[in-house]
Structure formats: C-alpha cells, structure tokens
Amino acid sequence: MKSEHLYNYILGIADNSLILGQRLGELCGHGPSLETDIAGTNISLDLIGQTRSYYQYAAKISGENKTEDDIAFLRLERHYKNVLLVEQPNTHFGYVMGRQYLFDVFHLLLLQELQFSKDETLAAIAKKGIKEVSYHKRFSGDWIKRLGDGTPESTAKMQEAIDDLWPYTQELFDMTAADTAMAQKGIGVDVSKLKESYYKEVTDLCELATLKVPQIAYFSRGGKKGVHSEHMGYLLADLQYMQRTYPNMQW
C-alpha cells in the first residue's frame, strides 16, 4: 500500500458519511412530512455520494485490487472508523436532527480545512462537499431552532435528544495516529483545533433554540478505534446483507 496512514485517514472521514447516510436512508418514506422526507433523503444521497468518492480514492491507493464496495460492505465491525455519534439510532425526529446538526457543524469545519489539503483528490472532494454540507447544516440547524423554540412538547423532546447525543461530541476531536501523520504532512486536518469553534457555534445555536447546553464531565468515545455501540452490529447486518449473502457477485 502506498500509504497506510493516508488509507486509514480517508476511511476515518468516509465512514462517518457512510454510516450517517445509512441511518438517514432508513427513514426514507417515514418522515414527519413530505418535505422533510425529501430533504432527509437528499442529505443521505449527498453523504453516500461523498462516501463513494472517498472510497474510490482509498481503493485506488490500497494497491490490493479493492473496489469501493469491498471497503463499504466487507469489513468487520471493528474495522469501521466512524464516530459513535453517527451510528446512533433514529429514536425520533429530534434525535435525527440533533445527530445531524452536531455532526454537520463538525463536518463543515473539517471540509473547510480539508479543501486546502496538499492531496489534490481530498481537496477536490472537500470542495464539492462544502456546498452540500452547508445546506445540511442550514437544514438541521433550522430544525433545532424550530423544535427547541416550538411547543413545550417539542422543546422537551429536542432537549432530551441534545442531552443524549452531547456525550458523543468530544470524540469528533480525538486525533488518531493517521490524523496526526496526515496533519503533519499537510494532507489531513488537525481536528483537535476545531473544537473551540465547534462548541462555540453549537452553544450559540442551542441558546437561540432556547435549549440548555449540557454541562457534563464524561464523554463516550471508541468509534474511531473501531469499538462501536451495540447499535452498530444491526446497522451493519442491514448494510452488508447482500454482499455477505451473495459473495463475489456484480450488481
């Protein structure tokens, strides 16, 4: 392999898009309104599109004759590098928007840096993604405001979602070995430096949405190292079903 760190770095970014895209795809046809259904599917579609660009690049540099689908579907759970936040279930629409917004803010900050990567392919994927993710963040942020500052019921539900999802936010800023190696080369982004802007933005929006920012000392992490939540196995069972049941076939 040309660069193991680069390969792992790409997967570290792409797996978040894949798993979040998969989660949103589960909701297609079941949204609270036709408009939100269309928007959710649209975001899922963007994320799957981004995933494909990253995996195609990763497959190319792997030097192992891999395809994007091998990477997407044929890894063991321990080898998926997505953060715990994105694999959290679609408990209700407040969780869906909460998970989305808490990821979107990070995602946009990441891509805004990644567009200046010395790696031309990553820079190009990031540039394209910025437009899409700006829209994702606007959509999810608007919903946090509506639900947070809506009815007493919606405020309570949105607060519940933010409280439950908040502990997964710090993992976004953990540096893996691949992150460190790639950041040093000017290819990757030092995500630990995004933390301050992230919490400032998220906190400001929570205040606008009349939501309380959770004050907690303990955070959950593990996804980046492949130690996922119990939800992940079921998500992968769905995701991998066809490729596992019918190995080595073209679709």
């Binding site: 046809g29 799957i48 599109g49 689908d69 679709w251």
Partner: peptide, 29 residues
C-alpha cells in the same frame, strides 16, 4: 415509496444505494 424504501438499507452496492435513494426521492417529489 415504502416497498422500495424497504431495500435502501440493504442495497447491494453503493451505486445501487444512491440510485435507489434518488428514485424514492423522485417519488416523494
């Protein structure tokens, strides 16, 4: 949208997943 949405999470390749998402989204449209 429902019978086709039923296969989004299990589509056999990323290309098919994206195409199916787009198709079901068209139907919503």
């Amino acid at each position: 949208m429902l019978p086709e949405g039923n296969w989004i999470s299990r589509a056999p390749s990323l290309r098919r997943k994206a195409a199916l998402l787009a198709k079901v989204q068209d139907e919503a449209g």
